[in-house]
């Protein structure tokens, strides 16, 4: 690790945000570099000063009691509303409820009778486009951030176990540096409400995200799509479905997809 990289990694190392392999590399550099050692000691001194000397503000009892009371009041209110209603329901309410129920039941029966295949189809199409939208959004979010990766590593043996520790999924990680697609690292991102591993590659100036998706997630993802000059291409990563999002042109993207298939 050269001095410049080490300097950039120093706060990450200090804050425990560097993965194991990169930490080891950094420590190797530290053995040789007095400047980095001094900088690290400086950060540690500052932390010690802050933790020892800065006052710890604990919530005053009065505030604690206030919040306790509010929480208790809210809990009892949300319990008592249905209780009070069921206690003595006005007669008209029962009438309205019965007609409403009949109406709803009729509606359900009608929609069932109309047949489910059509409904299922209309529900599925938005799910697919929603997934595509999420993937594009995640990619753009990552581009807007200063660093598109949570774990910086060009070593696939580092990236894979890092994911395993974070999301319990260990995707197949391959590096195509020789073919011009360099593994930069990985991150965890949200697709809908699911946390998914993302492998990050770089090709020239292009950043490539490979989202590793849950089984059956790509079933309703269109073959490939494009939005604002960015492309989305579903593929399979070993036996897991995945999707590539990037701003590379179609030819380069195809080359990249072929590498995964090989």
């Amino acid at each position: 690790m050269d001095h410049k990289t080490a300097q950039a990694n120093l706060p990450l190392y200090f804050d425990g945000e560097l993965d194991r392999a990169a930490s080891r590399e950094f420590e190797a550099h530290l053995d040789e570099c007095a400047d980095c050692r001094a900088a690290l000691i400086g950060l540690d001194d500052l932390r010690r000063t802050l933790r020892d000397d800065a006052p710890r503000h604990t919530a005053p009892d009065l505030l604690r009691k206030r919040i306790e009371k509010l929480a208790a009041a809210q809990a009892s209110r949300s319990e008592s509303i249905p209780a009070r209603r069921s206690h003595r329901p006005p007669r008209w309410l029962a009438y309205v409820a019965s007609t409403l129920l009949a109406f709803v039941a009729g509606g359900v029966a009608t929609s069932l009778w109309q047949g489910s295949p059509r409904n299922a189809e209309t529900a599925e199409a938005p799910a697919g486009t929603q997934l595509a939208r999420d993937l594009f959004a995640s990619h753009w979010r990552a581009l807007a951030a200063t660093s598109p990766v949570d774990v910086v590593s060009t070593d696939r043996h580092t990236v894979k176990p890092w994911f395993e520790g974070k999301v319990g999924v260990a995707p197949v990680v391959r590096d195509f540096a020789e073919q011009g697609f360099v593994l930069v690292g990985g991150r965890i991102d949200y697709v809908g409400s699911a946390r998914v591993p993302v492998l990050v590659y770089r090709h020239g100036q292009h950043l490539i995200d490979v989202f590793v998706l849950a089984e059956n997630a790509t079933a309703n993802l269109a073959a490939s799509s494009a939005q604002n000059g960015y492309r989305l291409e579903p593929l399979r990563l070993g036996d897991q479905p995945a999707a590539i999002v990037t701003d590379m042109d179609a030819a380069e993207l195809e080359k990249f997809v072929r590498l995964f298939a090989s």
């Binding site: 503000h57 604990t58 919530a59 505030l63 919040i67 809990a75 949300s78 319990e79």
Partner: peptide
Amino acid sequence: TAAASQDFVGELAQRHLDAAYSLGRWL
């Protein structure tokens, strides 16, 4: 449900009340 989310917030706020208050003091 509404009741469950109220309980969740009540519990969360009380567990991290010191952190919340400390942040308030510093700001």
